[in-house]
Nucleic acid binder design. Structure first.
Lengths: 214, 214
DNA sequence: GACAATCACATAACGCAGTTATATTACTTA
DNA sequence: TAAGTAATATAACTGCGTTATGTGATTGTC
């Protein structure tokens, strides 16, 4: 393998990466506009001047496309969540986590929908992969809940970190999930989601703390 | 039109209704077992010894099947919610509404998913139909929230019935929606949903009330 | 510099889905 | 008994995700 071949290899890899990137970009645009079901491989391919089969040269199948897009976006979530780790007080940290979570859901509705709002058959029975960013984030939330419990500031009925995590997660997930699914439905006169989410966080914290705080 | 023809007409209508019923029953079983996407018209038809086209003689398309099934189940929700109307205290009534709502979601996951967890393109821009059971239920929740506010027992920052309704709805929706979508995912060590939901209701109420209660 | 190999695509097609145009069969009505 | 109609079947269409196979350009080897 000489210098010329190395340069050629590098160029080919660059071109391959560039094609991959173009596919991902077109896929993201289409997924966001049309949603998962209504996005066809043919449409993605046509948008960048390829045939559908070309996509399969770069990605295993349609799910792999969404999975990669989701994984990319999830780095942002993981980072945002972990930045809250600097907050010393676990209660304040829990609130920051919730805020970052809502912000992520609202700015990345497509991967959010893919990860948390759809039931995939592969979900059942699969072993917990340590790399899964969703489970990763849950573990982080759970740990913070355990820290909150350890402060002793909660009412005595809150001793289970998983239960507390599921209460906190569920409360905020419901609001953003409804917003994503029904946000354009005029009959529900939707209030500003970020503000409502903030109130849900306040209520959750005040409702679980041992003493009235403010 | 003589007596015989009337009898014949009636019998034919009975038979037609019976076929409709059989289709709906088979569709319900399949939808519950397999979910919406994996349920095929061919499978429904085969289960009752018909060809797929026969279904189209009774229902416009696949969505119409789910819509009718959902409407049927939703009568149960509306009734269950309205039965809570007998509770005089608005705060207690709100709690009962939440309990009935969670129970409905867990016992009717398919219509729940259809109505609240999927974004349908027809949702946008459509006028509010008064018959829509979903909006009907929201209106009932909203009214109860308004009643709660009117009692004056809430903290001063809670004055908006829609906001309060969306907080209550979202909190419980999130828990059951996660359960429906990710309930079989082993990495999240799910606690008993009804119990967690009860704690969410407690926390929401205690967190919004003016004075600590118990 | 010929030549095999490989890469990055395209062509064509498969199987399955929802759906529909067109029979066919049975029953009702005149 | 003939015409009409309602209920179902047959066969096919379109569009989907996906794959087996072809093709042409580029690369590495003798």
């Amino acid at each position: 393998m000489n210098a010329r071949s190395t340069a050629s290899l590098e160029r080919r890899e660059r071109e391959r990466a560039e094609t991959r990137r173009k596919i991902l970009e077109a896929a993201r645009r289409t997924f966001v506009q049309q949603g998962y079901e209504r996005t066809t491989m043919r449409a993605i391919a046509a948008k960048i001047g390829y045939t559908p089969t070309a996509i399969y040269h770069h990605f295993k199948d349609k799910d792999a496309l969404v999975a990669e897009l989701s994984a990319l976006d999830f780095r942002a979530l993981s980072q945002a969540l972990r930045q809250t780790g600097s907050v010393a007080d676990p209660v304040e940290r829990l609130e920051k986590i919730g805020q970052a979570y809502v912000e992520f859901a609202l700015t990345h509705p497509m991967p959010y929908q893919f990860l948390f709002m759809t039931r995939r058959p592969t979900d059942a029975g699969q072993e917990a992969m340590p790399g899964d960013p969703g489970e990763d984030a849950y573990g982080f939330l759970r740990q913070t809940c355990a820290d909150v419990i350890a402060t002793g500031r909660l009412r005595p009925e809150f001793t289970d970190a998983d239960e507390l995590a599921q209460m906190a997660w569920g409360s905020l997930h419901g609001l953003v999930a409804l917003q994503i699914a029904k946000g354009n439905h005029p009959a529900f006169r939707w209030r500003d989601v970020r503000q409502t989410a903030a109130k849900i966080r306040d209520v959750t914290i005040r409702g679980t703390l041992r003493e009235p705080t403010r």
